[in-house]
């Protein structure tokens, strides 16, 4: 019983084990697997990232005002859903220009609320793709 008193007394002067998160921010490592980012001017529209993604989180959909690029022959635009992605970075390994057109940063993904239409908006984009 004396050992437990001694241990409780020395624990008064140690640093606490808790990190109080929203007040003090936590630094992430440089190699942390975060959001996927896209450079629009360097893309050559080969569509390899769309075939390599397991859940299908990248879609190229025909729209009325496509971005102006001489390789974009069919009028496509890039769409990405951070709530469907599993952050495995298969798309970065399949891209022929991995540092300029598509790369993985170490930022945290954003949190969605009800008005963002995370699920219903994606079903409408998939219907446009099939037509």
């Amino acid at each position: 019983m004396l050992t437990s008193f001694f241990k409780a007394f020395t624990n008064l002067f140690k640093k606490p084990q808790t990190i109080d998160y929203p007040v003090t921010s936590i630094e992430k490592d440089k190699e942390y697997r975060g959001l996927i980012e896209y450079g629009e001017s360097e893309c050559i529209y080969c569509l390899k990232c769309e075939k390599a993604c397991p859940p299908g989180a990248i879609l190229f959909v025909p729209v009325e005002n496509p971005p102006k690029n001489e390789k974009n022959k069919k009028g496509l635009k890039y769409h990405y859903n951070p709530h469907l992605c599993i952050y495995c970075s298969e798309c970065v390994r399949a891209c022929p220009k991995p540092e300029e057109a598509l790369w993985q940063s170490n930022k945290k993904p954003p949190i969605g609320i009800k008005d963002d239409k995370v699920n219903d908006g994606w079903f409408e984009l998939e219907k446009l793709k099939k037509v």
Binding site: D29, R33, I86, S89
Partner: peptide
């Protein structure tokens, strides 16, 4: 695990 692979659970 986060230092070696980049994620805490589900390291691909």
């Amino acid at each position: 695990q986060e230092l070696i692979t980049g994620n805490r659970v589900q390291f691909d």
